[in-house]
Structure formats: structure tokens, C-alpha cells
Amino acid sequence: MNEYTILMHLLTRTKQGISNDKLDIIGASVEELCDNLHFTGKFAKIQLHELMDQFSKAISIFNLQLKQNPFNFRWYLTQSSEIEEIFNSNPFNGKPRIAATLCTVLSLCLTNSGKIDINSVKKIRNKKDIIKDLHELEKSNFIIMEKKSNQISINPNLGYYLDIEGFLNLLENEIRKKNL
């Protein structure tokens, strides 16, 4: 067994979450990686990043990428978005309305320190039965709805499936195009 074997195991494992939603947590945190690899001391994180750098190059031939979930900061492995595009594997194929609602919620959450009011989504989307869309997104574990406070936030689970940086870049390009 070598360090790559340990990394592969930790980055592809799932374990049940502690919170009430009991969602599976994928991958590993920096602390968990260092603990399992026995990297200790001042340079533990540098050592880890060097190893992950080599590892990501080694797995790139399989079209796998090493990524960090921006919502819970866990490292995990994923296939490149090009592959997903080829195979149309996103769950919104044939459901553009749900995708558009998620797109709106995500953008609003990212620019409003994480939480938004349900009414703000209703106003922007301006469609009937928007609550149905939100419930479907909640069921798919992409958003969290707080009924008492009428607020929505992003479920960290979404961070595994969306390239957030890519999303912001595309959004910025679209806004630029419109402003030109």
C-alpha cells in the first residue's frame, strides 16, 4: 500500500453525515488526509499539497480531477465537466425550469452571504408554483429550506456536483455580454 492508495480511498469514500439530513459526505478534509497519511508538524499541509499535486497529475490520464467542495472544504475526485456534457449526465436534462430556479437561487445565495428569502426567488423568477421547484430542489439535496424563517440556503451537497468557479465565470461572461 502506498500514499496514492490511501489518497484514492479517502477521496472516493462516502460516510454518513452527522446532521439530521443524514446525507452522505464524500471525500476527506485536510485534517483527515494528514491524519491518515501521518503527516504531522509545521510542514504537514505543504507535504499534503505536494502529494496531492503529484496525485492529480497521475490521475489526469483517467480524466479524473481532484477538487475541493467550496461549501464544506472536503477534497474529492470528480470527472471533468466535458465528459459530463458529452453524456448529458446532469439531472436537469428535460427540466430547464428547475435548472433555471437553481441557477437563480445559487446566484442569489452567493451574493447574499449564503441565505436568501423565498420571496426574493419568487419575485425574480416570476413564475407560478415556484415553491414546487424549490421543493424538488430540496428533495434532490441541492438546497435547504427553512420553513420557520422562510429562508433558503445552498446544501453543501451541491458543491460536489457543480463547478462553482466555472459557474461564476460563465455568469460573469453572460452579464458582460448583456452589458455590451
Binding site: 474529492y76 475526485l77 470528480t78 459530463e84 449526465s89 433555471a100 437553481l102 457543480l162 460563465l170
Partner: peptide
């Protein structure tokens, strides 16, 4: 909605899980 949904086609990814 289709135009917004297209954004997801380019950035959707699936985590590798064993």
C-alpha cells in the same frame, strides 16, 4: 429557462465514489 439551464451543462460534474 433553457438559456439558464445551458449553463449547468457546462459545469456539472459527478463525484467519484466507491
Amino acid at each position: 429557462d433553457e438559456a439558464l439551464a445551458k449553463i449547468f451543462n457546462k459545469i456539472w460534474q459527478s463525484p467519484l465514489s466507491l
